[in-house]
Computed example of a mutant assay.
Amino acid sequence: MTDDKTTATAAGRAVPRQREDADPAGTSGEPAVRVVKEWQEIWHRFAANKLALVGLVLVVGLLLTAVFAPLIAPHDPLRQDLLKTLQPPSADHLFGTDILGRDQLSRVIYGSRIAVVVGVVSIVLTLFIGIVLGAIAGYFGRFYDTLTMRFADVFFAFPLLIGAIIIITVIGRGVWPVVLSLAIFGWATVARLLRSSVLSAREMDYVHAARALGAGHLRVILRHILPNSIAPVIIYGTFNVGTAVVAEASLSYLGVGVSPEIPEWGNMLASGRGFIGVYDYMWTLPSLAVVLTSLGFIFVGDGVRDALDPKLR
């Protein structure tokens, strides 16, 4: 005879009775807890890098400035006052006015919107194209690999700015043509970077096991290969948001980016080019905005690299 905590088997041997709400495998909630702990470790490693935190402050400041530009800007960035042209910094215009009497500070604040849109959207589009083509080339190999890599070599032959100028000349100026041109001439690096990671990951035992269990190509790529190959691409993308901002400002400075009347940092640098050494405030503030934005994303990228480095786990 057994008590209520045991039950009799067919052989008459008493074994402990399991509670109905017990988890026999002992794994209830473990995947979610594991993911949370992993992200906590990544954040701790990121926060240990002081420059990364400085970069995060700069990036968050840029995003907030872009979102709340109408509330922060003291003047209308498009409003011209020909009676107040080329005024030096004053109480009314903290960073002076340009050749048309427009407030420099307001134009820099509104210029952050162009920087955020071009920098973030162009990198997201670049990563999407590069990840798709790089994953196909690395996973399937052979014909797909050769075709994708030779196609990428064509884009490697063009310097980024020259290629962007060609596309913008064909389809016209504007924010979205700039975004498209930067993505078209930036995906090749992402594809080659991911391809090398996929070539290593596809030979791992867990990939062979997934195939043996009948998993399709798409499931193997999305569930098993990309999660273990995507870290270098994420790091590359974080680093290159600042590069995209600099490239966009360079295109506008050369006169092939966004329209001249739009408040944008490259346009401001172009208008202040003829006043270097005379009215230096015209180019100092937009230059500082470009430098701080680029540094912010570089510092964040450096922190992300350290946080995702498997050698530090």
Rank of each mutant, 00 (worst) to 15 (best):
A8W: 13
A11D: 12
A11V: 01
G12K: 14
R13A: 12
P16V: 06
E20V: 12
D21L: 03
P24N: 14
A25I: 06
G26C: 01
G26E: 02
E30I: 12
A32H: 05
V36P: 05
I42V: 15
A47G: 04
A48H: 14
L53T: 05
V54C: 13
L56I: 02
V59Q: 13
L62I: 15
V67Y: 14
V67E: 10
F68C: 12
F68T: 03
P70V: 11
D81L: 01
D92H: 09
I99V: 07
R107K: 12
V108Y: 09
S112A: 14
A115K: 04
V118P: 08
G119S: 15
V120F: 15
I123G: 00
T126Q: 08
L127C: 14
V132T: 15
G134Q: 10
I136V: 12
A157S: 08
W176Y: 12
A183Q: 04
W187F: 13
T189I: 04
R195C: 00
V198I: 05
L199A: 00
A201I: 12
V207W: 00
A209M: 06
L218Y: 01
I225N: 01
P227W: 01
A231Y: 09
N240H: 01
T243V: 06
E248Q: 11
S252K: 10
V256M: 05
V256H: 14
S259C: 03
E261P: 06
G272H: 03
Y281A: 06
A289K: 03
V290A: 09
L292S: 10
G296L: 09
F297H: 13
D306T: 08
A307G: 00
D309Y: 00
